[in-house]
Design a protein around this nucleic acid. Structure first.
Length: 461
RNA sequence: GGCCUCGUGGCGGAGUGGUGACGCAGAGGACUGCAAAUCCUUGCACCCGAGUUCGAUUCUCGGCGAGGCCUCCA
């Protein structure tokens, strides 16, 4: 390994050198979507950010030596509500299946358009209920959980160092707590591991009756199942630090008796709209699909690569104000980059160094832009540019140009040159304009030897 | 109230204890029949105050401002 990787760890609030538990199998877990509705562009940020991390790890440790798990949350009261709303005629389970399947398919399409590689495993909560029950039983057996009024609750007081991740000691939390304290909780911070379901709620049989899991337990169960009791990296949005990740840690560590759940905790910042967090409950969100397929934002649709690059032009921990201007700049940059195939070349060391320094995609993109310009002038630079761009997942693909179309364009270009020689500018410009309308950009240059006009062209992306 | 981020030129955005990255836009120029594309030139920015220092945008403290979490949330 050439460059040491350094990442900012939410757990220690410091940037430290990353050392995997097992370099032959680097394991990362990222909190994925709850599938009840279109994902918004804020949801796209962790997908993209951790995709870059995944690519970087694969590059450093080898493509077969990284395991990336990203869950699909398909048990959630929002899903139930959506199922009842959209499919009132169907039996509940069927209605839920319709909602989750449709949303999941859409999510995969959206994320793929943003250039994200699929994770190695994408477990669903509903496929891991027994694993969750097992953890809950362990927690009860170890006196970290208790049953009260049909719920199984985690006993936060039973964990002496609860609150490490969010730096939120229990006693301080009570002071300004706005949450109404449920009477059946021993401590206000106690959270649900399992709750009973009524007839018209989805449920699974358990030692505590037919019920469903609490929000946090699925990630504890699935990360253990696919990555082990202790793994390398856990990622997600800033807003998951508390309570979600804090509680995952509590469950996993108390169930397994381990000192940590994951060594490195990474959190991405928010996508903002007009300086405010984009959020579904606030209604100020724009979906990935709207950006890709409709003219909702800025009066036009936007290619996935543009959205991805726009996202990588800001460091992952900083907020991004989502704007048309920003997308336009990303598009302009991409338009100047050559299309290429990934190939087997090594990425530029400067790009590697940038990414190795806490995923500094901004510096990486800047370097990439310089490389693109070098490659435009000197084709021997192309493989390095391509490899570097591929590392970020922003390599422009060669536009598929039909051969018949290509020769037709070549013929028109030749015809135009003839007209120019004859100083028939009106006709020549007409050809140029017509091609332009078809998205074909003519580029006039000079042959350095003869000084004659040489015209090349390309499809605008 | 508690906890956590952040504050750099029109915009985006790194970085550093000692003359001001860079990109985009803008301006000027070259090239062109005119354009486009391309190339060249051009930016004296670091929230405020105090302190540490020979020297701070960079360190410390205070202030102001913005955002986030504490409730479903990427």
């Amino acid at each position: 390994m050439s460059v040491p990787l350094k990442f900012y760890n939410t757990l220690t609030r410091q940037k430290t050198v990353f050392e995997p538990i097992d370099p032959d199998n680097v394991r990362m877990y990222v909190c994925g979507p709850t599938v009840y509705d279109y994902a918004h562009i804020g949801n796209a940020r962790p997908a993209i950010v951790f995709d870059v991390l995944y690519r970087l790890l694969r590059s450093v440790y080898g493509a077969d030596h990284v395991t990336y798990a990203r869950n699909i949350t398909d048990v959630d009261d929002k899903i139930n509500a959506r199922a009842l709303r959209d499919h009132p005629g169907l039996p509940l389970n069927e209605a839920i299946r319709q909602v989750t399947e449709k949303t999941e398919t859409q999510y995969h399409q959206d994320i793929a358009a943003l250039g994200c590689l699929p994770p190695n495993v994408e477990p669903r909560a509903t496929d891991n209920i027994p694993q969750m029950i097992e953890i809950i039983e362990k927690l009860i057996a170890r006196n970290h959980a208790y049953v009260a009024q049909g719920e199984v609750l985690f006993d936060t007081k039973s964990m002496q160092d609860y609150g490490q991740l969010s730096k939120r000691p229990l006693d301080e939390q009570q002071a300004g707590a706005r949450i109404a304290v449920d009477a059946h909780k021993k401590n206000p911070g106690d959270f649900v591991l399992w709750k009973l379901s009524s007839e018209n709620e989805p449920g699974w049989e358990s030692p505590w009756g037919r019920g469903r899991p609490g929000w946090h337990i699925e990630c504890s169960a699935m990360s253990q199942r696919y990555l082990g009791e202790v793994f390398d990296i856990h990622g997600g949005g800033l807003d998951l630090i508390f309570p979600h990740h804090e509680n995952e840690i509590a469950q996993s560590r108390c169930a397994h008796g381990t000192q940590v759940m994951a060594n490195l905790w990474m959190h991405n910042g928010f996508v903002q709209v007009e300086g405010r967090k984009m959020s579904k409950s606030d209604g100020n969100f724009i979906t990935i699909n709207e950006l890709l397929a409709t003219k909702t934002f800025g009066g036009r649709s936007w290619p996935g690569e543009v959205l991805r690059l726009a996202m990588l032009m800001t460091h992952y921990r900083e907020p991004i104000d989502f704007s048309v201007k920003r997308l336009e700049e990303a598009e302009r940059l991409l338009g100047k980059w050559p299309a290429a195939e990934p190939g087997t070349a090594e990425p530029c060391p400067i790009v590697m160094e940038a990414l190795a320094d806490d995923l500094n995609t901004v510096a990486a993109v800047q370097r990439l832009h310089a490389l693109a310009q070098e490659a435009n002038g000197d084709s021997s630079m192309m493989p390095m540019f391509a490899a570097s761009a591929a590392l970020l997942g922003v390599l422009p693909k060669k536009a598929e140009v039909d051969e018949a179309v290509a020769s037709a364009v070549d013929a028109l270009v030749a015809m135009r040159l003839e007209m120019l020689k004859a100083k028939n500018f009106a006709e020549a410009d007409k050809i140029r304009n017509e091609l332009g309308e078809k998205g074909i950009q003519l580029k006039d240059g000079k042959d350095p030897a003869t000084g004659e006009r040489v015209t090349t062209w390309e499809m605008k992306r």
